[in-house]
Design a protein around this nucleic acid. Structure first.
Lengths: 139, 139
DNA sequence: TATGATAATGCAACAAAGTTGCAAAATATA
DNA sequence: TATATTTTGCAACTTTGTTGCATTATCATA
C-alpha cells in the first residue's frame, strides 16, 4: 500500500513527505469521501492544520483528489479514479450522500445524463449530488 | 413589491420585521443566488450578522429559500419557486454557476434526468450543479 | 387601541475554520 | 555529500458561524 502511495506522489511530482503519505493513504484505505475535519481527526495530532490545508489543495491541483459540493459549508474530498491521473481530468461526477450514516461516496460508474439547459447557457462541467439511503444503511 | 414580501412572510407565519423584509426583497429583486456574505454587504451595516444567519435559516426551514451546494465552502441561497410555498418542497433543482461572472442561477425549467445508481442505493433528492458560461457572459 | 404574551433582534463572548509570512527542517538534485 | 528547493510548523491574524441573554419589536385579543 505504501508503495502505491509513493508512486502516486512521485507521478505527480510531489515530494514524498510524511503528511502526504499519511493523508493519501487515509483516502486509499477509506471508501468514502473525507472533509478537512475528518482528516484532522483521523491523522491524530500528528500534523499541523495548515499542512493539511495545503496538502489537500495540492492534491486537488494535481487531480489526485476532487471536491464534492455540499450545502453544509463542509466540502468533502474524494479520490479521483484512474483517468484523472492521465491529465484528462474526469470532471463529471455523481456523488451519493447518505441521510442516515452521513457518508459520502463517489459513484464512478453512474452515467451522467445530458442536462437540457435554456438557450445561451454553455455547460463545461456537471456535478450531481444524490441524497438518500446507502447500500449499507438499507440492510 | 413590499406587499408581496409581507404576504410571503404572513403566509409562512413569520413575524413581519425589518430584516426579513429587507432580506426577502433582496432575493426578489435579484435574479441570482446569494451567499450569506453577499447579503451582509447588500444589506449594508443595518443588521447584525446573527440576525442574517437566523433569517436565512428560518427562510430555508419554511421553504422560502433553498440552498445550493458549492465546493468553496460558501453555500448560496435562492428563492424557491411557487410550488415550494404549498408544503410540497421542490427538492430537485438544477443550478448553474458561471465560471466568468460567478453568478449562480436556479434553472427551474430544466428537466432533471433519472440517475442510475448501483444496486441498493435509494435516491430521495437529486441536486445538479452545472458549471459553464452563462447567457450574459456568452454575448 | 391598549395590553400581555410571544417572537425577533442585537450584543457580547466564544468557538471553529481558514489564511499568511517566515524561519527551521526535510526532501530532492547533481 | 553539499547545495538548492520544497515543505512544514508556528504564530498571529481574519473570517465565519454559534450561543445565551437582556432588550425591543411584533402579534393576538380583549
Amino acid at each position: 500500500m505504501n508503495i502505491r502511495v509513493e508512486d502516486i506522489l512521485r507521478h505527480n511530482r510531489l515530494s514524498i513527505t510524511g503528511s502526504r503519505k499519511k493523508i493519501l493513504s487515509l483516502f486509499l484505505s477509506h471508501a468514502g469521501a473525507l472533509a478537512h475535519g475528518d482528516i484532522e481527526k483521523k491523522a491524530g495530532e500528528k500534523f499541523d492544520r495548515v499542512t493539511i490545508y495545503r496538502t489537500l489543495q495540492a492534491f486537488v491541483e494535481k487531480g489526485i483528489l476532487h471536491t464534492i459540493p455540499t450545502s453544509d459549508n463542509n466540502v468533502r474530498y474524494a479520490l479521483c479514479n484512474d483517468e484523472c491521473y492521465e491529465g484528462h481530468h474526469h470532471d463529471d461526477h455523481v456523488h451519493f450522500m447518505c441521510r442516515l450514516c452521513g457518508t459520502t461516496t463517489c459513484i464512478n460508474d453512474a452515467y451522467i445524463p445530458e442536462v437540457k439547459l435554456p438557450r445561451g447557457y454553455n455547460a463545461l462541467q456537471v456535478e450531481v449530488v444524490v441524497h438518500g439511503i446507502c447500500k449499507n444503511c438499507k440492510k
